[in-house]
Design a protein around this nucleic acid. Sequence first.
RNA 1: GGAGAGUUGCCUGAGUGGUUAAAGGAGCAGUUUGCUAAACUGUCACCGGGUAACUGGUGCAAGGGUUCGAAUCCCUUACUCUCCGCCA
Length: 424
Amino acid sequence: MLQVTFIRENKDLTIAGLRKKRFKNPEEVVEKVLTIDAQRRETQVQLDSFNAKINANSKEVGNLMKAGKKDEAEKLKTETAGAKTSIKDLETKLAELETQLTLELYKLPNLPHASVPEGATADDNEVVLQHGEIKNLPDTALPHWDLIKKYDIIDFELGVKIAGAGFPVYKGKGARLQRAMINFFLDEAQKAGYLEVQPPIVVNEASGYGTGQLPDKEGQMYFIQEDGLYMIPTAEVPITNLYRDVIVNPKDLPIKNVGYTPCFRREAGSWGAHVRGLNRLHQFDKVEIVQITQPEKSYQTLEEMSAYIQSLLQKLELPYRVLRLCGGDISFNAALCYDMEVYSAAQKRWLEVSSCSNFETFQANRLKLRYKDENNKTTLLHTLNGSALALPRILAALLENNQTPEGIMIPKILQPYTGFDRIA
RNA sequence: GGAGAGUUGCCUGAGUGGUUAAAGGAGCAGUUUGCUAAACUGUCACCGGGUAACUGGUGCAAGGGUUCGAAUCCCUUACUCUCCGCCA
C-alpha cells in the first residue's frame, strides 16, 4: 500500500508511476485520494478540539468536586454533555473517511522503479542476460508430459482420482527427485546465509492483507470457510508476515529467511494449451527466499538475490535468461521484478521458474514492519523475495533437456541427493 | 469438547473511577572516557496543527456500553495459558 503522505507530497511522480504500470485514470484516482485525505485531516482537527475541551472540563469537574463546589460542577457537566453528540458524529465521519481512504489506497499498485522498462505486455520485457547453451534435441525428443509416463514417475490420473486436476502424484524416482531438489535448494540457501524457517501452510486474513494477496486476489487462494484460513499460494505470505507489526532492531538487519512449502493456487480460469503437464498446477513445491533490508540497501540486495538464484540454475546446468519486467507486466505489489526463465528444449519455449522482486515499502506499510534509523526515527523497511526455486518447471526442463537414449541424466550436483544418476 | 485463569510499551510487570503513557529492564542516541565497563541524560506508537520552538488528539487484546471523566465498571468477540477429555 502506498503512503498517503508520499502521494500528497509527490503527486506528479505518483501519477507518472501509475501510468507506467498501465493503471487506468491515475489523475482521477489520485485526486480522489487527496480529496478524502484533506477531508480526513479537517475532521481530525475538529474532533481533536472537541476532545480537548471535554478533557479540560472533566478535569475541572474533578477539581470543583474536591473543592465542594457542587453546583458549578453540575453546570459544567451539562455543558459537556452537549459536546458529546458532536464528538460522536465526528468520530463516525472520521472512521468513514479513513475506511474510504484505505479502500482507495488498496486499489493503487506499487510505483515502478526508474529502471522498469515502458511497455504493456510480456513482449515488452527486457532480456537482461542469457546464459548456457540451448540444446538441439532430435525430432524424437518428448515433452515432459510424455516422459513422465514413459518412466512412470508422475501420475496425473491418480491425482485426479484422489483430489482433482492439477494435483500430481509423484512416484518412485520422481518422488525422490522432488525431495532431492528441496534439500539441495535449502542447503544452498543456508550456505548463502539464509535462516531456514518452516511456517504454517495456512494463514489468517490479516496475513493475506499484510503481503497484498487480499483484498484483491481471494479468488486465487483456497479458503477454509469454517476456520477462516487461506492455504498459502507461496511461502512469501507466512514468512514475510512473521515480521508483521514488528519494529526490527537495526543490528538484526538484513533479515534473510528461506522456507520450503507446498504452494496452492486455484488458477481459476487459466487452463488451456500452454498449461499442460507440469507447466501449471494447483499444488506445487517451492523454496522461497525472503529478505528485509534498510531502504538504501534494497536494490543491492535484489541484485544479490538475483545472482544467487542464477547460481542455482548454473549448478543445475540449465540454460536460462533473466528478464526485467516492463511496467505493464510487473505485479501489483512490486517496484522492480526479475523473472528467471529456463529453456525447455522439447516444448521449445522459456518457462518461468523464479520471480525475484523488490517491494520497497509497499508490503512493509501494510505489515507495519519498521526499524529505527540513524536518527532514531521509526522508518518502514523494504521487503524482497524470490523463488529459489519452484520445482515443477525446473523438473520439466530437467526431464526434457537431459533426455538421452540411456534415460534422463541427473545433474551432478543433485546426484548425492538423489542417490541415482539417471532415470531409466 | 469441559472447567478455570489471563491479555497493559521492544521485554518483564504494578495499577479496581480523576496529574498513570504508567515503575523496572533491554535496545538505541547523547554526555563523560585512551578503549571497554560504569555513571548521568534522553527515548512508547499512531493521527493531526505549526516555518519552527512547540502543541492537540488517540491507543492498556478487538468492538460496543455506562460516566462530566474508564486500563479500572458492564456486554460481546478473539486469542493465550493451566487442568481434564480426545489424539498424531
